[in-house]
């Protein structure tokens, strides 16, 4: 049911495994390795383009972080040493923003994991109309995040918003996005609305891969639903839960369109997470692109750690036994 890309290539035509053990004469020629192969030639165009689009920006980013950048009348860099780094790392507003980002990321990812698990469990046990309900539940994922943010504003608009009116009927009479105390939780819940379906989708696939025989055994032993869930289903699903967690975390750090569209960092910096702080440096006020580069590099480091985890985990998975058969 679940397969990973591994460090070792999948056992395909090029795999030298059984042939290697045979006597020298009878076996086929050793498969070619490295750069002068068909496989590498196939990768060359994409990797060339990707190099241009990733290494050059990376070098520029590093260079910018040590320089004062001017973009008017041609781009020019003036080397300023560690000025940007000390300025950014010494700025309490940046630390506040990191802290805010951490709270934001952790809470949206945690909420999405919990709600996604709940949704997956419900959908898994739904007998009739599961396919239809799943299709409906998946819809928010395909809407442009900037539209999701604006739609959230519309639903919560204090005079005409549908949800705002429901909340007012329930006694919650405030402009939720305009108040510093509620803005961040509200923006977070908009993100939760859009991305919980992704977690639910992945975990649902995980639930379907838990072998029925183990569940039957548990039922025979008299274990109740929650007991089975906690001690059998969830442990079995651990790898897939991890995949969902990593995929969601990496994306949560990537995207910030929802925040841009709803509050754009306000009110009073209540939702100014790191990418928005970076934008403020880069494109607003007096173009401090160098400082933006410093923030960019720190964010990059963060996401590289996550990508490492994801890949290592991929490798481990394939090395171990594959789980379950296909549906």
């Amino acid at each position: 049911m679940s397969v990973g890309i591994s460090k070792a290539p999948p056992a395909t035509a090029v795999a030298p495994s059984p042939a290697d053990r045979r006597p020298r004469r009878t076996r086929r020629r050793r498969p070619p390795r490295g750069l002068k192969t068909f496989e590498f030639a196939m990768m060359a165009p994409a990797l060339t383009l990707l190099s241009v689009l990733s290494w050059i920006p990376f070098v520029i980013l590093v260079a910018m972080s040590f320089a004062k950048v001017r973009t008017l009348g041609g781009v020019s860099l003036t080397f300023t040493g560690l000025d940007n780094w000390t300025a950014v790392l010494g700025d309490p507003a940046v630390w506040a923003s990191w802290w805010r980002s951490l709270i934001y990321f952790v809470s949206i990812v945690a909420l999405e994991m919990l709600l996604g698990l709940g949704a997956a469990l419900v959908l898994h046990r739904l007998l009739r109309g599961r396919s239809l309900v799943l299709s409906i539940v998946l819809l928010p994922m395909f809407l442009a995040p900037v539209m999701v943010g604006l739609l959230g504003r519309f639903m919560l608009d204090s005079t005409i918003g549908l949800y705002a009116q429901l909340l007012q009927a329930a006694g919650l009479d405030a402009d939720l996005l305009a108040s510093p105390a509620t803005a961040l939780p509200v923006v977070a819940s908009i993100d939760v609305w859009q991305w919980t379906p992704l977690v639910a989708l992945i975990l649902l696939a995980g639930l379907s891969s838990v072998p029925p025989s183990t569940l039957e055994a548990a039922t025979v032993d008299g274990a109740g639903y929650f007991r089975t869930l906690v001690s059998i289903t969830l442990p079995q699903m651990r790898p897939i839960i991890l995949v969902a967690l990593l995929v969601r975390s990496m994306d949560a750090i990537r995207y910030f369109d929802i925040v841009t569209a709803t509050t754009n960092g306000g009110p009073a910096d209540a939702t100014k997470i790191i990418p928005l702080k970076l934008y403020e440096y880069a494109f607003r006020f007096n173009n401090q692109l160098g400082k933006a580069a410093v923030l960019g590099l720190t964010m990059l480091a963060f996401s590289i750690v996550l990508a490492r985890l994801f890949l290592r985990f991929f490798g481990e998975r394939t090395a171990g036994p594959t789980q379950g058969g296909d549906a």
């Binding site: 990733s54 050059i56 920006p57 990376f58 520029i60 980013l61 910018m64 990496m250 750090i253 990537r254 995207y255 910030f256 790191i274 990418p275 970076l278 934008y279 880069a282 692109l289 933006a292 580069a293 923030l295 960019g296 590099l297 964010m299 990059l300 963060f302 996401s303 590289i304 996550l306 990508a307």
Partner: peptide, 11 residues
């Protein structure tokens, strides 16, 4: 996986 904000500035 590179954060969009970190890519946009050098781009």
């Amino acid at each position: 996986m590179a954060p969009i904000a970190a890519v946009i500035v050098p781009l």
